[in-house]
Structures are given as C-alpha cells and as structure tokens.
Design a protein around this nucleic acid. Structure first.
Lengths: 114, 114
DNA sequence: TGTATATTTGGCAATATAGCCAAATATACA
DNA sequence: TGTATATTTGGCTATATTGCCAAATATACA
C-alpha cells in the first residue's frame, strides 16, 4: 500500500465513516433537520452510548458538527452534498438486482422483465 | 440497530466497499480505463493476492465487473457515477482543513487566510 | 448548593477486516 | 500433453470495529 497517496487515505476515511447503516441513517435524519443525541437514539433504538459513538465517528470525519444549545447538543450535517451519493448508490443496487434476475432466468426461473 | 431499514444496510455496504484507500485507488484507475489484476497490482505495489481480494470486495458490492479476455481478467467500473462522490468528499476535506486552521489561529499561530 | 438530565468515555467481548504467504486453479500456448 | 502465466483461495496473525454496560462528566435549574 506504500504507493497509495495519502489523499486516498483521507477520502477513504470519509467513505468509511459513511459506510455503516446506523450512520447512514443518522446522516439522512440530519439532512432533514438538526437533531440532538436523544432524539436520534430514540429513532435508532440502540443504546445511547452506541449512538454517541457513531456521532463521534461522523464528527471526526468532518461530516457533522455539534452545537450545544439549552440542555442538549444538536448535531447537523456539514456538507449536505453527501446526500447526492444516494442516487448513484441506488443505481448500483438496481443494477445488482437486475444482474441477479438475469442469473435466475439463466437457471430457468420465470421472472418477468423489469 | 433493529429499527434501521435493510435498505440502509445495502447502501452502507457500497460505501464500506469504497471506504479503503486501495479500493478507492482501484476505482479511480478503472474509471480511466479497464485494467487487469496484474496491472493494478503493479500500480498499487502490494501482493497480488491482496489486490485480488480488494477486487472481489468491489465486485461483490457490484461496483466493478470482470471479463476474461485472452490471458487476463479485465476489471471495469460498473457505475462511473461513483466518481462524482469525489467532488463532495474534497469539499468535506477542505472544510476540515479550514476548521483546523481556525483552531490554530485561535491558539496564536499566524496563518494567512485561505 | 444539590439533583436530575444529557451526553461522553472506558472497558470488555464478539466479530470483521487487512495483508501476507503458500497453495490451488484455470488456461493459453509451445 | 506439459508448462508457464494469471488469478483466486485458504489460512494465519494483527488490527480495527461494533455494541453493550457501567461509570464519568457536564450543566441547567430547582
């Protein structure tokens, strides 16, 4: 890996931070509006410490920022452009699903065209 | 994590597959043109088995496809739209760098404005 | 000041990932 | 057919990640 430029490392860190279902859920929730830890925890349904750690991963990557206000800490999305990734990701998933169906058809399954 | 929809899992898998410097390097190289394992291995400089495994991660995620031709197996990018992520990722990184400089300035360091 | 509330941190066990070597596989072609 | 070449797989160790609980921290407010 020595030939790989550190720039790839930095970029990969951002994608890695996004590469977890809970964190993706958080990102989407924050794209709608800023939210505090408790609110996210309730939506997600796991331990608050787990959610807190996911938030710290996202914050460390620079994807979210936090701001203390009143009795809570509100998290918000730094760069909403990350939500634009979803369209392309869905394209990949759709392509995968089509490939799967082609394979199934090859095996004799009767599946109508998309 | 029970409340998280499986769709988030699927999306996260794609991002996770992209979240490694070597794999990001491979994606970029394949965006330019299709390449065989040996060629990628030489560019990357790690063991060919390591590169092969990275390629299988990418293939499994549906990000690349492989095609045997002649004596080699050529890999190519399934959805070039993933390269569009880079612009936003660079925005995140730039924002992070600016934040860092603000912090440095707060500590008394003399750094010119960007 | 004392207490309840919100959040983070430490620590642990389970699991996943990365990278290397050696070995297996596949196959073009002499 | 036999051999060299390209790629994948198995297996191992080291390291990283995840998620929970318990404990620490911070702070608004009675």
């Amino acid at each position: 890996m020595e030939k790989i430029h550190p720039q790839y490392e930095a970029r990969a860190n951002i994608l890695k931070a996004m590469g977890h279902p809970t964190r993706l859920f958080i990102i989407e929730a924050l794209d709608e509006k800023e939210r505090c830890v408790g609110e996210l925890t309730e939506k997600i349904g796991s331990d608050v410490s787990t959610v807190s750690k996911h938030l710290s991963v996202l914050k460390n990557a620079g994807l979210v920022r936090d701001e203390k206000r009143g009795t809570s800490i509100f998290y918000s999305l730094c760069c909403p452009c990350v939500m634009d990734f979803i369209g392309c990701i869905e394209t990949v998933l759709k392509t995968n699903a089509e490939k799967q169906m082609d394979i199934a058809r090859c095996c004799g399954a009767k599946i109508p065209e998309a």
